[in-house]
Design a protein around this nucleic acid. Sequence first.
DNA 1: TGATAATATGTTAACGTTAACTGAAAGATT
DNA 2: AATCTTTCAGTTAACGTTAACATATTATCA
Lengths: 352, 352
Amino acid sequence: MTALKKKQITLKDIAERSGVAMMTVSRVVNGTGYVSEETHRRVMEVVDELNYRPNGAARSLKRQRTETVGLVLGDLSNPYSTVLANSVREHLAVRGYSLFICISEQSAQEDITAFNSLVDHNADGIIVATRSNTGGDKRLEAIADSGVPVVVVGRDFRHKTVDFVSADNLTGGFEATQHLIDLGHKRIAFLGGNYESRNSLKRLQGYLNALRLHGIEADKRLITGSRETSSRVPGYSTEKMGYEGMKRLLSLPDRPTAVFARNDFTAVGAMLAIKEAGLTIPQDIAIVGFDDTPLALHTMPALTTVRQPVGLQGQLAAEMLLNRISAKKVLDRVERVLDCELIVRSSTVVAV
Amino acid sequence: MTALKKKQITLKDIAERSGVAMMTVSRVVNGTGYVSEETHRRVMEVVDELNYRPNGAARSLKRQRTETVGLVLGDLSNPYSTVLANSVREHLAVRGYSLFICISEQSAQEDITAFNSLVDHNADGIIVATRSNTGGDKRLEAIADSGVPVVVVGRDFRHKTVDFVSADNLTGGFEATQHLIDLGHKRIAFLGGNYESRNSLKRLQGYLNALRLHGIEADKRLITGSRETSSRVPGYSTEKMGYEGMKRLLSLPDRPTAVFARNDFTAVGAMLAIKEAGLTIPQDIAIVGFDDTPLALHTMPALTTVRQPVGLQGQLAAEMLLNRISAKKVLDRVERVLDCELIVRSSTVVAV
DNA sequence: TGATAATATGTTAACGTTAACTGAAAGATT
DNA sequence: AATCTTTCAGTTAACGTTAACATATTATCA
C-alpha cells in the first residue's frame, strides 16, 4: 500500500542535505541577502533534486501577505464576467500576483461565503463584481473596515476606502436612445427595467433623459420589465424577459417603433417576439441592445448595441487594488466611470 | 492618518478578554472537545464583539489542509468552462469545500503558474480542464507524483493516481455523422480537425467510423481544419476557422451536402459562409455542431448539435476529487466516459 | 596598520493555530 | 466508599517560514 501523501520537503531538509543553516536556504530560495556563489549553487542543487517548493501557508503566516488577489463574480455565464476576469488576471500577473476567482451565483449567502473564503485565505485584496445585496454588502463593509483592500466593479457600493470602477450606464442609455431619436423614432420603448439592478436603472434614466431633452413625453406603458425578484437570475435568462416584455409591447394599441433593451440578451428575446409577430427589423421596429456581447454579431439582423469597455474596467480595477495593497497608508476612495460606445448595426439602420 | 491595516484579532486576544486559555477559545470556535455552556457563551460574546476570524494560513499550516480545491480552466470564454465551474463549485460546497478558479489562457507557462499557485497555497486537490500541453503536463505529473489529489476533465492525461472524466467524443462524433447519413447524405465534410485537440480528434474518429460502417469512403478533401498552432486560440476564434474552412469546402468541384463541425462556434462560422454563398440550410447543406452551446438555439436555422453532459462532468470531478482527498490510502485511477446526446434542430431537418 | 565597510553565514524568536497531553472536578457505577 | 468515566480547561510543542540580530571573515581605505 502506497503512502497517503509524500512528506512535504521543507527548508530543514534542504538545509541538512546541503550542510547549511535553514536561513541560508531561505536566502537562496528568495534571492535575498548575501549568499556566496558556491553556497548558492550547492543549495540549488539540493532544491532541484528534492523538488522543493516553499510552503505557502507558512510563508503567508510569517510574511503576512500572500501575493494573491480574489475576484468575486456573480455569474460566470455572462460574457462580461469572463472578459473582466481575463483582464484582471492579466494585469495582476504583470505584477506577480495570482488571481483566485470565486463564483457566488448571485445569492447573498454565497457572496458572503466567497468573501469569507478569500479573507480566510488571506487574499491581499478583493475585487467584487457581484450584484449588490444587503447581506453581502454588510459583510463587505466589515471587510473593508478591517483594512482589506477592496475594489468594486460595475456595481454600487459606497465606502470611504473602497474604489469604484464602472461603465457610464447613464450616458450609454442616453446615447442609445438618442440614436433612435436621430433616426426619427418617437415611440421608443425601454425593455427590461429591473428594480434590483442599479445598472439597469441607470440605463433607464439615460433613456428618460434623452426623451426629455427632445421633448418626447415618456409613456409608462412603453417602459416594461419585471418586478419579480431576480436576485438569482443569470444573464442568459433575461432573454425570456425580453421575449415576454416585447409581446406585451406588441399588444399595445399604439405599439412602439423602436426598442431600447437593457442588455443584449433581452434584445435577442425581443427580436424573437418581433419576428414571431411577422414584423421586420428594423423597418417595423428598430432595436438597440447593451453590452455588445458576442451574440450581438450573430443575430439577424446584427444588433446595434452599446459597448462598454470591460477590459479597461478589469485593468483599472487591478491597478487600483494593487495600488491600495502597496500603499503605505489608507487611501481615499477613487471613482472611475468609463465612456461607452454606440455600435451601430443593422437592427436600427438598413444601410449598414 | 489612518493606520494601514487594523491589527489582526487572534485567539490570544479573545483568550485574554474572556479570561480563558487560547485552547479553550479554539475549542469554542471549532466546536470540538468539551466546553461548558457558560464558557462557550462568554467566549462567543467576545468573538462576536471583536469580529474574530481564524487565520487561515496559521490554520492550514497546523492542520495541513485548507478545505479548498482549485480548478484550472484554459479558457473562460467558452460556455463549457462556465457550466463546468458552476457545477464543480456547487458540489464542493455541499461538502464544505471552497473553490478557487485559475485561468491559464491556454499557454503552457500559465498552466504551470496556475498549478503552482494552487499547490503553493496548499489546495487540498486540483481539477484540471485545460488543454493538454507538454510543459503543463510535466508539472502536473510532478504534482500528482507528490501525492496531491488531481482529477482531469475533458482532456487527456494518463497517470496512475489521476482520475479522468470526459464526454464520449468518439461516440458523439459517430452519432452526429450517423444522423447525417440517416438523412441520406453521402458527401459529408468534417470541419475543424485540430491536431492539437484530442477531443476534436476523437470526434473526427467517430465521424470516420460512421462513414466506414456505412461503406462511405472518406474523402480527404472533405476533412478540413487548420494545422496552424492554436494552443492559445480561445473557443470563439474557431468560428473564423469554420468560416474559412467552409469557404474552402464550397469551392470544391463536388461540394459536400452536409457538414459536421467540431464545435458550435465552428458551425456558426460555417453557416455564415454557406449563407454568403446564397445557399440554404439544410436544403442545400445540412450542418451539425457539437457542445450545444446557448448559441446553437439562436442561429437561423437552429443548430443540430451534440450535447455533452457538462454539469455531470463537474459533479463527478468534484466527487472523485473529494473521494481522493478523504481517502486513507492512494486510490487507483478511475475513468468515467459519459454519453453524449444528439439534439436535432432545423439545421439538418426541415420539419423540426 | 588599524579602522571601516561589505560579504557571508548562523541563531533566535516569532507569525496564529491546534494536536497531544495533563490535571482536576463532577457524575455514574459497583 | 472506592473506582471508573465523563466533562472541562490549561500547558506544551509543534506546523514551515523569515525578520531581526549576532558573529565571523574578507576587502577597502585613510
